[in-house]
């Protein structure tokens, strides 16, 4: 299976949300990383046939997905960023309804719903109305609905927003298990979501792919190196101004800084092994610090 994006562009009036993007995905987990407004959601909505591209094509095994229509959507699972549901339906009825519009037969749907409710830890909430669920529980229902039809292509837009740390771990394990022989594309601005499970990472900024590759390739391609340096409190602000500081930690005798810099910022600075969080900061700069970008 091969999902090919060819010179894809989406313009809203004069603004290009996605601009001339090309990439080919096969089986595995793809992490789409970028700050808010980078074009991740627009790209995903095109991949789900919800938005028509202004230019370019998306091909599944050589066939245009918009021409494939229902045949493409039959192998697709999608969790939107802004996941909506029917508040008065129970969790079970909601999932059964979604299974029906996904073309899953009733008996198979019953079995699958039960199985997925167990996997997302919602078996006891099966008969609860959707509107009575907490934010994290709703998100878990959203993940379950995306996986109802055993999709060959699973697209998850910010799947972990609203999930607590335990739920995130459960989610990561679920995706790892599910992604065998499937293509999973998940977007996030939370680096830890994909750090351990993504086979490939797509860094997206201003509607374009800035850098793509395996986590190792991404780390190797990072234009800066990472340094650890402990400085007196009154000197810390000088480093904040002159360098990208990935982390600050109060330690006896001052503040320990994690600095991104091509050059050694101080003779006493010690080089560290970079992480994806460092990469994120390196590429997206100060914007990466907005909202809960690096967690």
């Amino acid at each position: 299976m091969q999902l090919e994006i060819e010179d894809l562009t989406k313009k809203f009036q004069d603004t290009a949300a996605v601009s001339h993007v090309s990439y080919t995905m096969e089986k595995g987990v793809y992490g789409l990383l970028g700050v808010n407004g980078a074009g991740k959601t627009t790209l995903m909505r095109m991949l789900c046939t919800l938005l028509k591209p202004s230019n370019g094509r998306i091909l599944l095994d050589g066939e245009d997905i918009f021409e494939m229509g229902a045949a493409y959507r039959k192998v697709l699972g999608y969790l939107p960023q802004d996941f909506g549901f029917y508040p008065d339906l129970t969790v079970k009825d909601y999932l059964m309804y979604i299974a029906s519009i996904k073309g899953v037969h009733r008996a198979a749907a019953r079995k699958r719903v039960k199985e997925l409710l167990g996997q997302v830890g919602l078996s006891k909430a099966a008969d609860k109305k959707m509107k009575k669920l907490s934010g994290g529980m709703k998100r878990r229902v959203g993940i379950a609905q995306a996986m109802l039809n055993h999709p060959a292509i699973l697209i998850l837009d910010e799947p972990t927003s609203g999930l607590d740390p335990n739920e995130r771990i459960r989610f990561r394990n679920l995706i790892s298990e599910f992604s065998q022989d499937r293509l999973v594309l998940l977007s996030t601005h939370i680096v830890s979501d994909i750090e351990s499970i993504a086979n490939e990472i797509l860094l997206m900024k201003d509607g374009e792919f800035l850098h793509t590759g395996t986590p190792e390739e991404i780390l190797e391609g990072m234009p800066e190196r990472v340094w650890r340096l402990t400085v007196p409190v009154h000197e810390a602000s000088k480093y904040d101004k002159n360098y990208k500081v990935a982390n600050r930690k109060n330690v006896p005798g001052g503040i320990m800084l994690r600095i991104l810099s091509k050059e050694r910022p101080h003779p006493e600075a010690e080089e560290e092994i970079p992480t994806l969080e460092d990469v994120f900061l390196s590429y997206f700069g100060e914007k990466a610090g907005e909202e809960d970008a690096i967690l």
Binding site: R45, C48, T49, L50, G69, A70, R73, K74, L76, Y78, L79, P80, D82, F83, G84, F85, Y86, P87, I98, S100, I101, K102, G103, Q145, N149
Partner: peptide
């Protein structure tokens, strides 16, 4: 209009029958 009001339209239209049988239903 409920699909849009509840913001359930994305999942609806991305489903296999979202632009066919599901509308007929």
């Amino acid at each position: 209009s409920g699909e849009f009001g509840y913001k359930a339209d994305s999942v609806f239209y991305a489903s296999c029958h979202g632009r066919g049988k599901a509308i007929a239903a």
